Amino acid sequence: MVGRRRLRIRRPPSRISEGSSRKSGEVESRTGGGAERSSGWRRQGAHVFPREARKNGWVYIKYRGTLGRRLRYAEIARGCLSWKKTPRRRTLERLVLDSCQVAEGDDQELLLTTAGKTIILRLQNKSLRDEWIRCIQRASSDVMDHYFIRGKLIGRGSFGEVFLGTSIDTGEVVAIKTVDRRKISSAKELEFVRREIDIARLLYHRCIVRIHDVFDESDKVHFVMEYLGGGDLFDAIAEENHFSEKIAVDIIRDILEAVAYIHEKNIVHRDLKPENILCCSKTWPYNVKIADFGTARRSQECEVSSDRSMMSTFVGTPYYMAPEILAGREDSFPVDMW
């Protein structure tokens, strides 16, 4: 019996970024992109990892330059440090921890400097002191490393790298895309990720990859995303060579549900392809989800913008482009169906 011939499937070239020419378009990778400053951004309606640092207990407190220290019940909550004589008594003092500085002191002490004042907190032991230092650091900053442990590199793009990550609070595994601002050379590149963030705020669907959180630091932006361990649909197609009708129906149904959802939100993806469809598992059921909204547009933007070419720019991946994009005509919802 003659065995079935296995086809060799090659991954097509990456997509062409918006604003590029047809002959020499700038290529943007799946994990590339830039970002505008968006500090404090949160997705509405989606799961967001806990960002609020909390701690309470008995500590000795004194201001630097004063004599003696007092035993107080201290609490860190809602970005503030407060203390009382007892847990049920009124608050004696409250300090906002925004942009404060914290450092180790002698033995069991920590030094907290904020608003021109230095406060010395003495804990029961060194281990407890270190816990309070970490909690104060988290309450006073927007640093990703205070919330997630970054693991191995799992992907790389033009402007960023994707790492496996773990939530310090919950232990949940995530994907962390880190974008280096120093590698972004134009305002157009910044626009790609800014638009992706804005659109992601509107989307919450089981067939769309979720962005849980965004950390905006001085020279880097970290996108904390849902981690899908099954790779992309292109790899699944290359591995299986062909799908049964049932599996194909399941995959197409999930994709169409996601496309119908974003179209209801007046959003056009404009770069749907197997590489931008991720799988939850490497075997059936794949439970695919649409990702990468860097070239997406809200359809009404072309109506309110003075730029009439907004929905007729040359974007996407050549092998998957709809005819109207290749022809330079105005594009809309049908390009996602192509």
Rank of each mutant, 00 (worst) to 15 (best):
D180R: 07
L228Q: 08
L164E: 15
E172S: 10
K188G: 13
F333W: 04
K55F: 05
P12L: 07
K126Q: 11
I119A: 03
A35Y: 05
T295M: 12
A35S: 15
D271I: 12
H242P: 01
Y320L: 07
S82C: 08
S185M: 10
G151R: 06
Y204F: 07
W132K: 04
D232R: 05
R43I: 02
I325K: 05
R270A: 14
S158V: 07
R194W: 01
D271Y: 03
D307V: 09
A139F: 01
D198W: 00
S312W: 00
S281C: 10
K188C: 05
T178A: 14
F293M: 08
R89V: 00
L81C: 06
A322N: 07
T317G: 12
G79K: 06
R78M: 09
F333H: 06
F148A: 07
S281P: 00
R253F: 10
T86K: 03
A200S: 15
A187V: 13
K282V: 11
R134M: 06
G3Y: 04
T317Q: 06
D219A: 11
A175K: 06
C280M: 08
A187T: 09
D331R: 03
I247G: 00
F49C: 04
T295P: 02
G3K: 03
Q137A: 05
P87T: 02
S158E: 12
G116F: 02
T166I: 12
T91G: 01
V179F: 10
